[in-house]
């Protein structure tokens, strides 16, 4: 059982990479995707991203993610097709035309978003959030407070999703129908849904803050972490590889 963005234990190469390499690598990978508009290169990036997902056995969440990203990028793609005429005209519209160029541009958008998103999401599935923050504090000298805020935020996503589910069940049992259509009716759902969620989140954050406080949160420094995050040869290779990809993206 694991939820959205929740760590899945494993021993694959991806799991064993240095957390910093994973995080930076994913970011550089995404940047590379946005630097290039070469469809062939982007397709290669997508294949590479999928290979990474397969190598750590994360195909199932990845496919779920791809569906979500596809829905979003399709929206962008449709706008692109309709409003950025380029290439040979295929269909004439009152305000312009749909051209071969528009279709390619739209396809590029879809592939680019998919390729850029996968490694970022993958990072969360193969890295413990605590490792990510600890490494950020140790290696990158990020102040612990900020690193912790980040990890807590990620940590709370499944918690709040779960709360949300409980609240929806409770209200459904009272007869509130969540499959309402129409804006006015949807607004009516704010009260039964958002008020309990808000109250429980405020309660939770409050008690989390107190719990952190009594455990000496303020005393924690960079030196407090026991675990070391040394770079192995493989980490360096991986980092160089993504940087190389970025260089290729810039050249192309």
């Amino acid at each position: 059982m694991n939820g959205f963005l929740e760590y899945v234990p494993g021993t694959s190469l991806m799991h064993r990479l240095n957390p910093i390499v994973k995080l930076l690598g994913a970011i550089v990978f995404a940047v590379a995707c946005f630097f290039s508009s070469n469809l062939v290169f982007l397709a290669c990036m997508l294949v590479l991203a999928l290979a990474m997902a397969a190598s750590c056995g994360m195909m199932k969440p990845t496919i779920g993610l791809m569906k979500a990203v596809f829905a979003f990028s399709l929206l962008l793609a449709i706008i692109q097709i309709l409003f950025t005429p380029s290439g040979d005209a295929l269909v004439v519209l009152p305000w312009g035309y749909i051209g071969t160029g528009s279709l390619i541009a739209a396809l590029t958008t879809v592939v680019r978003l998919e390729a850029a998103a996968i490694p970022l999401f993958l990072t969360f599935y193969v890295t413990k959030v605590s490792d990510m923050t600890n490494a950020a504090v140790k290696v990158l000298h990020v102040p612990y407070k900020y690193a912790f805020t980040f990890s807590l935020t990620v940590h709370f996503i499944p918690v709040f999703l779960n709360d949300m589910k409980g609240i929806m069940e409770s209200q459904t049992a009272r007869g509130v129908e969540f499959d309402q259509v129409g804006i006015i009716k949807k607004i009516g759902l704010i009260m039964p849904l958002c008020v309990p969620l808000l109250v429980s989140s405020v309660r939770k954050t409050n008690s989390a803050a107190i719990a952190a406080e009594v455990r000496g949160f303020n005393l924690r420094t960079r030196a407090s972490g026991f675990k070391q995050y040394p770079f192995a040869a493989f980490d360096v290779v991986a980092l160089l590889a993504v940087v190389a990809l970025l260089v290729v993206a810039i050249i192309l």
Binding site: Q171, T172, A173, R174, E177, V195, R203
Partner: peptide, 23 residues
């Protein structure tokens, strides 16, 4: 049965009262 039809027939008390209090 629709949600509201069921809700009329079967009242449900969950363990956590905070999930349903909203007013």
């Amino acid at each position: 049965l629709k949600t509201s039809e069921l809700a009329r027939r079967v009242g449900f008390l969950f363990q956590n009262p905070d999930n349903q209090i909203c007013c």
